[in-house]
Design a protein around this nucleic acid. Structure first.
Length: 500
RNA sequence: GCCCCCAUCGUCUAGAGGCCCAGGACGCCACCCUUUCAAGGUGGAGAUCAGGGGUUCGAAUCCCCUUGGGGGCACCA
């Protein structure tokens, strides 16, 4: 156990082998929450020792995503011209190789680790045999008892061994902050495990321990998938003479079928959520409530409010299914809370995306967006829904077909009459000012005079000018469209009806 | 196969022995509002608290077993 009085030091240690995953974001969030709540330090470390799968592009995606979420770190790697921050730089494991080599030397000197010359083929054969015998996979220990002469002989042949850690015997116990007392017999660990590749690069179980010790991590808060591996880490902390941090294993985020959330079955990339128009307030709020609750009935909480209330010991043990519908609801709630300027700023990129995708023909001005806010703000489940909601305002022409133009209770002839009359009314009324309040009464009067249900007439107009049956309120929509374009679209619809 | 973890409405959860024949939210249904769609309001369906044993005057809450689910067991992280 570490000292209890010092401020906590926690870390998020993603490996840049893929885009920022929802699960990583949640783990980062909980570490951040714990650090901020306790006045501790939040550290970011990149675990890039898997050279084959790691890439700088993923690293950027992860860092950008965490920034986007508002989860700033106190200590972390240099990035984009910025110097590394914190007393334990560097924060990329591939830049810390000497420290692992030194730790490895100490273990070898103490005979707690030894080189293993087994080939991948041999290991694979062992595994197959164990599987056939219905035995759990485990390293058979072929190289555990090599004499110095035997080692020398193998090394003379130019072969370099991977480094294995001697697991020994006994039971490792620890008190997980979330799960309570956990005990595991090391005989179930699968035998002596590899801590460094033949090329000298460290493996996760090793580098994570060396770095957590070096960076004085006091609380290791991570996913439950690491629970079974924790004894390996504890063994290494002890062998290296380092104090053991406290552990807290978070429940997993699950697919709908309750398996660990995966790319195959769920949308896992944070960047994809961002691209669809989920906002950080909602994502953070939602993620915080996956596996943790305030104990009250409040559920819309800002990051700061969550920090205030967060309690690691109140985190659940059971996994939680990721429910996108609930996220969308929360997102809509948060969008409605955004003030005008903020919403416009956040909406702009999504309108630009519509333009790039060719779904609209020009870019509306900020003022135009602002004037639309009263009717769209409560209708956006995501920012990305903007195009679908009002994209028809920014296209040269909407697609309408004769059948679609005719309201359910009407026929083509009535629709023709209705639109013709409505056009005339709108043209007349709109001569002076073109406002929703001015347009509605005369059109209602028109419907009344002709014995039409106002809703039917409105629906015919709606489809004629927007090409859709579901839109924001009609008169606001006409105003947004403007008199000229409203009339043009009515004319166009009438032409379509005539030629049908 | 072995080890570990977990278990309250479909989902996220409240609940830390009596306030619970279980509360809230999402989703679903109905109604209200209403020109459509949303939003909002009101109401409803939905959990014998996985099952079975205990402990206790009393258990969703404590213990045990069973079942179910998940995770781990790489020269991945």
């Amino acid at each position: 156990m570490t000292g209890t009085s010092a401020a906590p030091r926690v870390r998020i240690a993603p490996s840049p082998t893929g885009p920022l995953h929802i699960g990583t974001a949640r783990t980062a969030l909980f570490n951040y929450l714990f650090a901020r709540h306790t006045g501790g330090t939040f550290i970011l470390r990149l675990e890039d020792t898997d050279q084959v799968r790691s890439s700088i592009a993923y690293e950027k995606d992860i860092l950008d995503g965490l920034h986007w979420l508002g989860l700033g770190w106190d200590e972390g790697p240099e990035v984009a011209g910025e110097a590394a921050r914190g007393p334990h730089a560097p924060y990329r494991q591939m830049e810390r190789l000497p420290s692992y080599a030194a730790a490895a030397e100490r273990l070898i000197a103490a005979d707690q680790a030894y080189p293993c010359f087994c080939t991948p083929e041999q290991l694979e054969a062992d595994r197959k045999a164990q599987e056939a015998a219905r035995q759990p996979p485990r390293y058979v220990g072929r190289c555990a008892t090599l004499t110095p002469e035997e080692r020398a002989a193998r090394e003379a042949g130019g072969r370099r061994g991977a480094l294995r850690f001697r697991v020994g015997e006994g039971i490792v116990a620890f008190d997980d902050i979330i799960r309570g007392h956990v005990e595991i017999d090391v005989s179930n660990l699968g035998g002596d495990f590899v801590i460094a590749r033949a090329d000298g690069t460290p493996l996760y179980h090793f580098s994570v321990v060396v770095d957590d010790a070096a960076m004085e991590i006091s609380h290791v808060i991570r996913g439950e998938d690491h629970l079974s591996n924790t004894p390996k880490h504890i063994l290494l902390f002890r062998a290296l003479g380092y104090p053991e941090p406290r552990f807290a294993h978070l429940p997993l985020i699950l697919n709908a079928d309750r398996s660990k959330m995966s790319k195959r079955k769920s949308q896992t990339a944070v960047l994809d959520y961002i691209a669809q128009g989920f906002i950080r307030e909602a994502l953070v709020n939602y993620l915080a409530l996956l596996g943790w609750a305030t104990g009250t009935e409040e559920e819309m909480l800002s990051l700061d409010e969550i920090v205030e209330r967060f309690d690691l010991e109140a985190v659940h043990k059971g996994g939680a299914v990721f429910d996108r519908e609930r996220l969308e609801w929360l997102n809509g709630q948060w969008i409605r809370r955004l003030d005008a300027d903020e919403l416009i700023d956040r909406l702009r990129p999504f309108v630009e995306a519509e333009l790039r995708a060719g779904r609209i023909d020009w870019m509306p001005s900020d003022d135009e967006l602002r004037s639309l806010l009263p009717v769209i703000q409560e209708r956006l489940p995501t920012l990305g829904a903007i195009g679908d909601l009002v994209g028809f305002l920014w296209v040269d022409q909407v697609a309408v077909d004769a059948a679609g133009l005719v309201p359910k209770r009407w026929d083509a002839a009535t629709t023709r009459d209705g639109l013709t009359a409505a056009r005339a009314t709108i043209e007349t009324v709109g001569e002076v000012t073109f406002e929703a309040d001015e347009l509605e009464p005369p059109l209602r009067a028109l419907a009344e005079a002709r014995g039409w249900k106002a809703g039917d007439l409105f629906m015919a107009i709606r489809v004629a000018v927007t090409g859709r049956t579901a839109t924001p309120p009609l008169f606001d929509t006409l105003v947004a469209l403007g008199r000229e374009r409203t009339l043009q679209r009515l004319d166009r619809a009438l032409e379509v009806l005539a030629s049908a």
